[in-house]
Structures are given as C-alpha cells and as structure tokens.
C-alpha cells in the first residue's frame, strides 16, 4: 500500500497544479474534485478510514456541489452557450478522467488483493474518533455546531439581500440604494 500512497500523492499534486493554472472555472473544479479524492486515498493509506469517508462525502460531495451550483449560477449571459459547447469537448474532461482512472485502478487493486488493513502504525478506528469527539472535545463539537449555524445564517442573510436587490433593481432601476448603488456607479467597467 506504500505504492498507493505515492501514486495518490502524485495525482493530488498534479491535479492541484492544474486547479491553479486552469482558466475555465469548471475545468478547475473537475481537477479540484480529483485532488480531493486523491487526498481521501492518502487518508486511507494513513489508516484514517473515517477521515477518508468524510473527505469523499463532505468535501468532494457537498462542498464541491455548492461550487458547481454557484458557477452555474454565475454563467448567465450570451457567451454561456458558446462555453457550453466548448465544455462538451474531449479536451475538457480527458485530464480529470485519466487522473480519476488512476485512483479507481488503485481502489480495484486494493480490493482485489483483499488487504483492506492500512499499514499505518495503528489504524485509528471511527470508534476512537467518536469517543474522542464526544469526550474531551465535546466543547469543540458545540463550537463547531455554532459556527455552522452562524455560517448558515450569514449565507442566508447575504443571499436574501441579493435576491431583494435584484427585485429592487428590476422594479425601479438602479442607483437608489446606499452602498450598493455606490458600487454600481463607481466601478462598473
């Protein structure tokens, strides 16, 4: 499984390099998802199976879906259709597909060999993590829940204002709101 670590590390570094050099947001997002999946493989080889599962579910799943939603929301306009046809070309998805295939190959190899035990000094079981979470780290868990609540309220607040602003702009033109109108007139290049 040492080889699995090195291959996944190479995939992670390559895909992260691609993330910060791509010009198209969706291309970068595809590479970012592959990078997160590679880090999940690395977690698994380090004996942290619970963290690996959470990486796939929360990071590569939930957070990336948020990114996809917002990027799709942002791509409104006449050039969107041109981009759409460009995205469907082979060039846009072949890179992430190859890197993801490497990770799938690793998964198949590990399952075929039947060695699901991680070679770490001592794999940390989910039970241990749970006991630590709700034992000495209980206050941290409560604080994390408060943080998530604050994030939710903040995102809702920002999103609601945004929707109301659009309505207001549609109703009686722009420029009659304090800070928002200021920005619109100032830096609309």
């Amino acid at each position: 499984m040492n080889a699995a670590f090195y291959i996944a590390a190479a995939v992670a570094v390559i895909s992260t390099l691609m993330v910060i050099t791509r010009l198209n947001a969706i291309h970068a997002l595809l590479y970012l998802i592959v990078s997160l999946l590679a880090v999940a493989v690395i977690f698994f080889t380090l004996g942290a199976a619970f963290a690996a599962a959470l990486e796939v579910i929360t990071y590569a799943g939930a957070i990336m879906v948020l990114f996809v939603f917002v990027i799709m929301l942002l791509n409104m306009g006449p050039q969107a259709t041109a981009q759409e046809s460009q995205w469907l070309s082979l060039k846009s998805w072949i890179g992430p597909a190859i890197l993801a295939l490497i990770l799938v190959g690793e998964l198949a190899f590990i399952i075929a060999r039947g060695s699901l035990r991680a070679p770490a000094p001592g794999p940390v079981e989910p039970k241990q993590v749970g006991e630590a979470l709700f034992g000495p780290y209980l206050l941290g868990v409560e604080l994390a829940s408060l943080l998530l609540l604050a994030g939710m309220v903040g995102a809702y607040h920002l999103g609601r204002e945004w929707g109301a602003e659009i309505e207001r702009e549609g109703a009686r033109g722009q420029g009659d709101k304090g800070t928002g109108g200021h920005g619109d007139n100032g830096i609309n290049v």
């Binding site: 939930a62 957070i63 939710m152 995102a155 945004w162």
Partner: peptide, 9 residues
Amino acid sequence: AAEVAVGLA
C-alpha cells in the same frame, strides 16, 4: 463548510 457557504454567497 461554513466558510464556503458564506464565501459563495
């Protein structure tokens, strides 16, 4: 997760 929610908003 919280940062992404607020950041994307």
